[in-house]
Simulated assay, not measured.
Amino acid sequence: MDAFLVRMPSGSRYWTVVDDELQVMPVADRYLRDLRFGRSRAELTTKSYAGAIALYLRWCRRTGRDWSTAAGDMGLFIVWLKYSSAGASQIVVAGPGVDPVRRERRINGVLTGVRGFLAHAVAAKAAPGWVLGQIYEIASTQDLPLEAQGEDAGIGYRLGARHRLQEPEVEVNRASDEEIVALLHACRSARDRLIVLLMARVGLRVGQLAGLRRCDAHLMVDSRILGCDVEGPHLHVVRRQNPNTAWSKRRSSIWFPVDFLVVQAFDQYVYERHEFLGIDGSDFLLVNLFRPPLGSPVTPDAVGELVERLARRANLDRHLTPHMLRRAFGSNVADAGGSLDEVQRLLGQKDPRSPRPYLRPDVRRLRAAVGRVPSPREHGEETR
């Protein structure tokens, strides 16, 4: 069993699961197609889920289990995931000192895809209904944090994952201001500087950045001329089917304010783009200027390669990723006095808990916070 990329006649793509004879697994294929086109999930999501389902079906085949009822042995599947490589032809018995093949985060990702597949199979009558009780447990919404319970104080119920490994807490990393400046100095074109600023000063994800169209940039002080009610310079991010596989995670469109540095970088890039392409090129905002096919939209992978290349050129002593620039933006907003709801909106996140991993306070802000705490002596003087 393996994941397989499918290209539809319309140009849309999704990932499915095939066996060794390249025969499609029907139930998995229906689930993944519904995930991609019915629920409008990203192509990369179907790739991740197809890989997870393929691992589950491979385990079932090698252990002689029926995939539709093997959920009762999910604990054994987790052990297999932890210690067996994808290409292993035999079941591996783990002993003391054996290093795991997959860590907790990766295993939890596989379990998420398998749970969705089995729930779909139950709904499609391809698996018995009791399987749901093996992969989910009923939990009260009152167990959720207050921020996630909503305004309705009534008791509700939700399905909680029965199998989930405890992931070790890892400090979220961010790019420092010095590293961002070094990246900007390492840029050799206005386009590259704009890409860095859109991540470090606007907080865009790679998929949002690579999917921008020229009509999404409203950089005039008064956007009413363009038929837009948003005040000040800003960008609109819209979910679209893009040929460069760029994809916005948000289903609804959202706008992001931009400052004078980004507006200035836009102006320089527009001049550079016209110098190389004239009026040619696609409607995408960020396009290839220095390698063929000229004028075609940059891809999300190309943005990651650019950041990596700039970090090497700047002689930075560690590896940087585009997401570290986004984290830097969220942390800098908080360091400048931004509230949690402001950070949440500027990062384009709906869940009030989502921005918390992005916030890595500056050491000076932490010291200032301690300095604002009154001493016991001051309390004593007030009570006299």
Rank of each mutant, 00 (worst) to 15 (best):
F4N: 01
S12M: 14
R13Y: 05
T16F: 01
T16K: 02
V17S: 00
V18E: 00
V27H: 07
R30M: 10
Y31A: 11
L35Y: 14
L35E: 11
R36F: 03
F37K: 01
F37I: 02
W67P: 09
A71V: 03
G72T: 12
D73L: 05
F77K: 02
I78G: 06
Y83D: 01
S84P: 06
G87E: 14
A88S: 04
V98Q: 10
D99V: 09
V101L: 02
R102M: 12
R102A: 10
R102V: 09
R105V: 15
I107H: 02
R115G: 03
G116Q: 04
A121H: 04
V122T: 04
A123E: 06
L132S: 10
G133W: 04
I135M: 00
I135V: 04
Q142K: 06
Q142E: 13
D152G: 06
G156I: 10
R158G: 08
R164S: 15
E167M: 07
V170G: 08
V170E: 11
E171L: 11
R174A: 11
A175E: 14
A175F: 07
E179D: 08
V181H: 12
V181S: 11
L184N: 14
L184V: 05
S189W: 13
L198H: 02
A200T: 02
G207P: 13
G207S: 12
L212M: 13
R213W: 12
R213D: 14
R214S: 10
R214N: 11
C215S: 11
S223D: 15
I225K: 15
V230W: 04
E231D: 07
N244I: 13
S252V: 14
F256Y: 15
P257N: 00
D259K: 03
L261A: 12
V263P: 05
Q264G: 13
Q268Y: 09
V270W: 15
V270H: 15
E272W: 09
E272D: 15
R273W: 12
L277E: 02
L277D: 02
S282N: 05
L286T: 10
N288C: 13
N288Q: 08
F290D: 15
V303A: 12
R318G: 07
M324Q: 06
R326F: 00
F329S: 02
V333T: 00
G338H: 00
V343H: 02
L346A: 08
Q349M: 15
P352R: 05
S354K: 06
R356Y: 12
Y358T: 00
L359V: 01
R360C: 07
P361L: 01
V363I: 13
V363D: 09
R367G: 09
S375V: 04
H379D: 03
E381C: 04
